[in-house]
Design a protein around this nucleic acid. Structure first.
Lengths: 354, 354
DNA sequence: GATCCAGTCTGAATCGATGCAGAGAGGTGC
DNA sequence: GCACCTCTCTGCATCGATTCAGACTGGATC
């Protein structure tokens, strides 16, 4: 049996409160008595107040949760997510707060339960694919949260940090359009929740539920609409999951069509790298000069010479945690838009004339 | 005021126990009543049992802690650590357990407090530089833990997953020795706790406190002892911190010595990459053909063509968490040694004759 | 009709602490 | 000598649940 605070109190011959004070409010008792108490505690092997009991009584836990769409193991595979986590970690560290990574089980009920059961003081919600249910649980629990995916129905007091997805996407697409490309494919992760890999037909971008994906695709479409290419002419490709493999799989057969696209705009660097992988796998003589763009500017993008949109990943995480741990008095300040930049590299070039 | 379980009980007109059972043990009440209770809960906005209270009563939390030497933000910077975390995450996920990343504050007392206050059911201790104090706290708390750095004074029942650092290090060093190198430098992170960057003289490898560093340096020394180069002839370099910058800084001036080493054996890939950085920064005409080796085989090592020792990072994390969450009945099975492999790439070559 | 049982539900103790109001002791000022 | 403080320390209510031993109900069994 682990000794409790009571045991220490008995050993020293003081009340429970006094022992508690010895740990939590040293100014409430004489240094001498405090010394005796801590000594006795050491002797008894009392490891200090039980964190859980303390949290219950105090009403807060001292840790923040990070909620991910998908597998926890995936989160560590995605370089962007890792940088985001690093940012959250840095902020948490400054505040002396721990971070709890909560895996979401498959089933809807179980996933709900996981969010309900997380012992945290608040959540950083990292772009959960269909996050509404999670936000609902968090709100029900009365916990604060910061979201990183802009939602249409976000309340005015809802804290958020992110980028203008649509404008950023329009930027990179305008660059591609400016190079003369007109037959282009748009590639994104989970365009529709359960769609298979590959081409997909949608009457409009409005059908895309995930706000981030929606924003990026809409931005791509905006830029091409401006040069007279409308939605119906764009090839939409779905990738189930954000991985190089998924990216490569989604473009299978694409370049062997009668009139293949001359450019692929991907919704993430990881997918774009997958497209480059697919191209690299073709025999050297049969490698069409496709322009490819990504999104995020992860370190690998620089290595691969990928044209992409840079967004400050670590900053995003840091600010998300900061907004959570140290909420600005001004409500407007709880809504942070980070800058993005078009990074042009070798993966895009003028459309080949032929 | 958030509604409590009691409030729901009152609303439905049943006892607290029954409401509790509705959530935790559905078989203890009729489906009809359970339905009424859950409905009432929804109506009241009761978000389910309070996780903290539940943990207190039940005696376990449902999350495991991961303890890092250093800054949380550093952990996400080190590719090896990230893979390790991915492994822990995968295992945690399988068990429906969350993982708590606990930042350790600077002060010794505060750091202790942080470990004492972490609400977890156990710890994966990732190579904490001077981890003894942390293990002591964990043991005092009566919590299980798995260590990843072999310690001399480890009890027989202490769970551990790691590699034979010394043998692995000897392997890569033997490769370098086999290439004819005799004037070599050994580079490691925190050879001595507070030593400055650069050369360091130690009477023997026994003086190195950190078990991992000790093991690797000892292995390096073993291999060279076999070819007649003894400890005193080896150049020992300290890097304060495991980063490319630290690696580069530690070899400053090294290659401009009268009789510079022909090889640098680093205790980690990150440090080795720093050495390569330092070499690459020299004017092309003045770039000595130094052989460089790393340790860990992180993805970047392959890109850089670094000869190194491969160890299964993700596996290490996965097994660490698995040993914690699902302890083997057999004590011996709690001590796992993972395989390593020498990976020879372009960064090592025969010693230049001159 | 007494007994037994399975299925449901309740009451009360308990997990391990915190924090407030207040009690006593000792000292100061007038 | 009385009122008034300041320091320390104590007692008690409380945080929000879980759990176990029983109580009650209605039906089957002999």
């Amino acid at each position: 049996m682990k000794p409790t605070l009571q045991a220490v109190a008995d050993a020293v011959g003081v009340s429970r409160s006094t022992v508690s004070n010895a740990y939590s409010r040293p100014d409430q008792l004489s240094a001498a008595l405090r010394g005796r108490i801590l000594d006795a505690a050491r002797q008894l092997g009392y490891p200090g107040p039980n964190p859980t009991a303390r949290s219950l009584r105090r009403g807060f836990v001292g840790s923040i949760g990070v909620l991910f769409t998908s597998q926890l193991s995936y989160a560590f595979t995605d370089p962007f997510a890792v940088r985001f986590l690093a940012g959250v970690g840095a902020a948490a560290e400054r505040h002396g707060t721990s971070m709890l990574l909560v895996p979401l089980p498959q089933g809807a009920t179980d996933a709900r339960r996981a969010v309900e059961n997380a012992a945290v003081d608040g959540f950083c919600v990292y772009c959960v694919a269909d996050e509404e249910w999670a936000l609902e649980v968090i709100r029900d629990r009365g916990l604060p949260y910061v979201s990183t995916a802009a939602r249409d129905d976000a309340g005015p007091d809802e804290r958020f940090v992110g980028i203008d997805e649509r404008a950023a996407a329009r930027g990179v697409a305008a660059h591609v359009a400016g190079l003369g490309h007109r037959r282009v494919a748009l590639l994104a992760d989970s365009v529709l929740p359960d769609a298979p890999a590959g081409p997909l037909t949608l009457s409009g971008v409005g059908q895309v539920p995930h706000p981030t994906t929606h924003g990026r695709l809409a931005g791509f479409a905006d830029a091409f609409a401006e040069v007279g290419v409308d939605w119906a002419e764009l090839i939409l490709l779905n990738a189930p999951g954000n991985s190089r493999q998924a990216g490569a799989a989604a473009v299978a057969g694409l370049f062997d069509r009668p009139a293949p696209p001359t450019a692929v705009l991907a919704g993430s660097d990881v997918l774009a790298l997958g497209v480059l992988d697919a191209l690299a796998e073709r025999p050297a003589g049969d490698r069409p000069p496709i322009s490819v763009t990504g999104f995020d500017d992860i370190p690998e993008a620089a290595v691969a010479g990928l044209t992409t949109v840079r967004q400050p990943a670590e900053e995003k995480g840091r600010i998300a945690a900061e907004l959570l741990l140290d909420p600005p008095a001004d409500v407007a300040a709880g809504h942070v838009l980070l800058p993005t930049a078009l990074v042009v590299r070798a993966s895009t070039g003028p459309v080949p004339r032929s």
